[in-house]
Design a protein around this nucleic acid. Sequence first.
DNA 1: TTTAATTCCTAGTAGTTTACTTGGTATTCT
DNA 2: AGAATACCAAGTAAACTACTAGGAATTAAA
Lengths: 150, 150
Amino acid sequence: MKISTKGHYGVQAMFDLAQHYGEGPISLKSVAERQGLSEHYLEQLIAVLRKAGLVRSVRGAQGGYILARQPDDIKVGDIIRVLEGPIAPVECVNEEDAEQCHKAESCITRSVWEKVRNSIEDVLDSISLADMCKDAEKAKMNKNYYMYYI
Amino acid sequence: MKISTKGHYGVQAMFDLAQHYGEGPISLKSVAERQGLSEHYLEQLIAVLRKAGLVRSVRGAQGGYILARQPDDIKVGDIIRVLEGPIAPVECVNEEDAEQCHKAESCITRSVWEKVRNSIEDVLDSISLADMCKDAEKAKMNKNYYMYYI
DNA sequence: TTTAATTCCTAGTAGTTTACTTGGTATTCT
DNA sequence: AGAATACCAAGTAAACTACTAGGAATTAAA
């Protein structure tokens, strides 16, 4: 019951781009450094995100990547679906794949996986990159607050 | 974002045992036939469930397996955790593993995975084998109801 | 007491996936 | 021109998946 590093790193990278939204193109090198990830590996992930239309790229020196939409219009679910494929704990509840178990109608275990899928989707589609940035701001302020009293 | 066939088949097998709870030991052969699974492969899964104390076995002819607790006392989450390991979409929110990311406190993406983990756990721990049996009964009655009118 | 049915155990295995690394080429700013 | 970047293709070691194969131990029933 895991997501791979693709989805994991992908969300980190997109969050990083959101935190620098409005500052022009952000180089992958800087993202990789801040997030502690392999730049070459990130390259492969961001290529997928670009082809899916979630980021735009600017080539050449001083180039980099920019979110294709505003941070509040990109949900974590969008990123995960692009990098990990459709959210479906087992194949037979994959909404994007018509080919399902022949006894799907009456399959009771199937309804369990549907509930799991729906709850995952609810969470992932309820959190935008803007939400994450807000949380990061809050965490930072809390830290300063506590530091004030030390 | 998938569970493997271990968890998938394991839940199917346990549900099958629940549906025959009270009928004495149920042979793996019959479970495998009803559920359309490889008996030899199921053997490996049920061995894990037995070692974890979720089923008891009876050896020899007319032997088989029996749920170790009543169907309403076994949750889908119990089965999944035994067969798939702890529920954690990424390793850094694994509750049973102390070794976590050094910046865990302030990691914003981490809190996303925590929310996902919690929602999965909520669903899986809210559904018992008895619940699934009740749903199966209902599905069966609905089918009969519709057949009556055809 | 034999036989058949069953659980239990160990090992092998082909294929897939993961998480990268390597080694470039193309583009653009300075 | 040179440096900084995006873009691209291929390779790879290790782990994992979903089984299969083959047999030993146990027990109810004939």
